[in-house]
Design a protein around this nucleic acid. Structure first.
Lengths: 211, 211, 211, 211
DNA sequence: GATGAATGAGCGTTCATTCAT
DNA sequence: AATGAATGAACGCTCATTCAT
């Protein structure tokens, strides 16, 4: 990679990060090119040097990269050799940590998203779909192998993964909407999600299982 | 209620419905006062007679009323005397039917929402929070009483209800993002959600439970 | 025509006139929507109520209507029963008067024109072409009938008409470029054009013809 | 002239030529510094080394030089010893050839020109005026000497020359506006212009002159 | 009350110009 | 001298809001 490309990548990354910060602070609706430029401490016109297709492309890339990074961060701590249930438990805990560390961006993503305003077939929508699908499939794969190992029962692993993904947003949503007064720490939240996902509300709790 | 108030309520309701149709058709971003007025077959200025605080107030009210209506529709078919698990099963199925019948609006709500662009403390955000909370609490109550009856285990019924709510959006999201080729019918989806919610992926399936 | 249509036509006319004044004052390049709005003493947004297709459409319409008006004004003073040469002479004189009375707009039209920036087949270009052609053909018809009457010789009346049209811009261009110090009055200019067009530089001058 | 000056002149010439090509391809409106730089295969900033006064100066110079070159090319084929009418005829034919060979640039010049957007007194406008005047005067001189020789009658040679210049654009304009279906070749066009200029529509045609 | 024409602040985008390298 | 990344003023256009009718 030439020196120019390195610089360009660096700039693109900086702008995307500024975009995510802006989205986190002002929401998607409140994210203007001016604000992103301010956040990135560059001039408005400079944005268009790196994102000639304009605002939509920029925001889309920011979100796509955000999800991609998250997936990477998630998989970095993953150990495929461990038993599937343990892996799952560990991943869910990691996920909560990740969500915590990008809280504002996630808030916007969950509560103010613009996931599929695109016409079906629009390249940008496709990209977004793909990266989201990758993330879901990462979980779905684990579930599938766990099911094959007989550790769990999952007739439709993709759907189960999707539901897991949604479940993980629940505590965040609760916090964001301030529905509870004293939010539990994220480990407790992670436990709750894992628990419900594994055993359901009727299932036998590992702890109570004993006896 | 005076005759004027009746008329006013009627108009307000019509406008809100038009707003929801517009949101369903064009998404939140594509919803302009012009389009809502067109959809309601009234003049643009008239909207400001009934919503003097402007567009945000209108959209917020439309969403709030939409959720409220949904909650009402849901509770209408509910029979509090039945066993909690049966109630839950029935409610989840109803929920899928309701989502199906307002598919476009739901799509916008889930994928293109603008839930909390409001500053914390903003009255509109509060209202939205409250009506969402009511809906969640309706489920939470059922879960609590089920737990007290020993039918389920739910240390944090509100969180469980929230997770259930999120889980129900999973099949819809899958359909909307076209992640699967041949979407199952809504009854199958409802079963899957109920199943995971009750027994988790490790739990004993009712069918397999037997023996 | 309803009252609304009358009002609308009036507004459209006012805007087009303002556009022509702006073109006359600032040239095509210097004509911005803001300036046209200022000139018409209305708000910028109002322009878009009457010209929803935007600036290009507006400027195009302004030019088209300008040429059309000119053609109308020209034909108003025309008497088709008179001998063709006399008609031609009279029309040329009228033309100079008209150019004089819209001098600024004409200046822009001749020196700063944007006649065919349009892609071939563009509706706007077609309209412009048509109205220009109508104007040229008006002269071409007169020339053709004169030729048939034996009064003149014109193997290609349309080309002759075009050349006449161009010839008439010569004195204006001379004035605009200030190529001469003391511009002759427009009657003298009209005479010169008529003379050259009728007899050429070698032809027998009516005056010198005598002898 | 120092070596540096030679190089500078060479660069200036290349840029001006690139500018004319760009004007020919994209019109005046579509001519940006970026495109000229691309066309000249130099960096954008380099243009400002040679044209520190900016874009207007550059485009103006390009046009001025274009007209100057054309005048030079025209005079190169001229033979001042021949009888004036013959000279004229030959020059008109040359002119059509020149216009043909720079068709795109001429098209822009005639139909999309920006001749006098300048304030009166602006140096650039003066330069343009001067070079145009030179071109016109070249013809005017021929006409004057022809008149003195008694070959033609031209009370105002400059105006006659201007009209001749305009007349020559008529066939080109006809072609550009596609007003005729099957454009005649340029020799026919040149004949038509010469004929009208010499004899007018009433004049005695050389052919019919015979008797 | 109801209307919709009018408004103008604010946005996304372009591009002539500058200047550090 | 040559570069091209960076700049920001200026433009076309949208749309929430107002107000005379």
């Amino acid at each position: 990679m030439t020196k120019e490309e390195v610089l360009k990548n660096y700039r693109v990354g900086e702008i995307l990060e500024a975009a995510r910060r802006t989205i986190g602070r002002f929401g998607f609706e409140g994210t203007t090119i001016d604000r992103v430029a301010d956040e990135a401490r560059i001039a408005k016109g400079t944005i268009y040097l790196y994102f000639p297709k304009g605002k939509d492309e920029l925001l889309n890339s920011a979100v796509v990269e955000g999800i991609r990074d998250m997936t990477l961060e998630l998989t970095r701590g993953d150990d495929a050799t461990r038993p599937p249930i343990e892996r799952l438990a560990s991943l869910i805990r990691s996920m909560f940590k990740i969500m915590k560390s990008h809280e504002d961006f996630f808030k916007a993503l969950i509560l103010d998203s613009r996931f599929v305003s695109y016409e079906p077939g629009d390249r940008r929508g496709e990209e977004l779909r793909r990266v989201y699908l990758e993330w879901v499939d990462f979980f779905a794969c684990i579930l599938r192998s766990a099911a094959e190992a007989g550790a769990i029962r999952a007739p439709d692993p993709q759907l189960a993964a999707l539901m897991l993904a949604e479940m993980m947003t629940a505590p965040l949503r609760r916090r964001l909407l301030a529905l509870n007064d004293t939010p539990p720490d994220i480990d407790t939240d992670a436990e709750a999600v894992l628990n419900l996902f594994l055993y359901g509300v009727r299932g036998v709790h590992p702890g109570s299982q004993s006896k």
